[in-house]
């Protein structure tokens, strides 16, 4: 297990219309959650090339969160279905290279789910913290 000092590096790639708006809503409502995540905004989760996520892991990310609109609610109709499919494949790839697939998480947080966003981040931080630093960091150097 990781010691007290260690803080995970978690990348969040989230869509503009739902999850980013939901994260903003958590902010306006001052819902507190752990700070161990950094966000990159894309217009839709459909934009997320699986290679972005692999790149993040190679760069030493301990976890990656992909978050978009609920199914049926994607601003571009079906980007999130396509993203979900890719994440599914990517997860099995991660398992194959010996990386816990729990380090990659896809969630659906709508623009009105500020409270859920806080819960999701806390959960991802907890999960990744308990997994400890990514083993890829070792090999990476």
């Amino acid at each position: 297990m990781a010691d007290q000092e260690w803080k995970p590096k978690i990348l969040g790639i989230i869509c503009n219309w739902c999850s980013y708006a939901g994260a903003d809503l958590a902010g306006s409502a001052r819902t507190q959650y752990p700070p161990d995540i950094r966000i990159i905004r894309v217009m839709c989760t459909g934009r997320i090339d699986p290679l972005f996520i692999l790149k993040a892991f190679v760069d030493g990310a301990d976890g990656v969160l992909v978050s978009g609109c609920h199914f049926g609610d994607c601003h571009y109709l079906e980007g999130n279905y396509k993203a979900a499919k890719r994440m599914f494949i990517l997860k099995s790839l991660l398992r194959n290279i010996g990386l816990e697939d729990k380090r990659l998480r896809m969630t659906f947080v709508s623009a009105s789910e500020g409270a859920k966003w806080a819960v999701v981040v806390k959960d991802v931080v907890d999960t990744v913290t308990s997994l400890g630093p990514s083993p890829l960091k070792e090999i990476g150097r």
């Binding site: 010996g98 990386l99 890829l136 960091k137 070792e138």
Partner: peptide, 20 residues
């Protein structure tokens, strides 16, 4: 990074070189 034993040893490929 803190030294952590790599989870499994089957990741032989030099992942870092082949930055995808």
């Amino acid at each position: 990074t803190r030294k952590e034993p790599a989870a499994k040893k089957d990741t032989k490929k030099p992942v870092s070189k082949a930055t995808p």
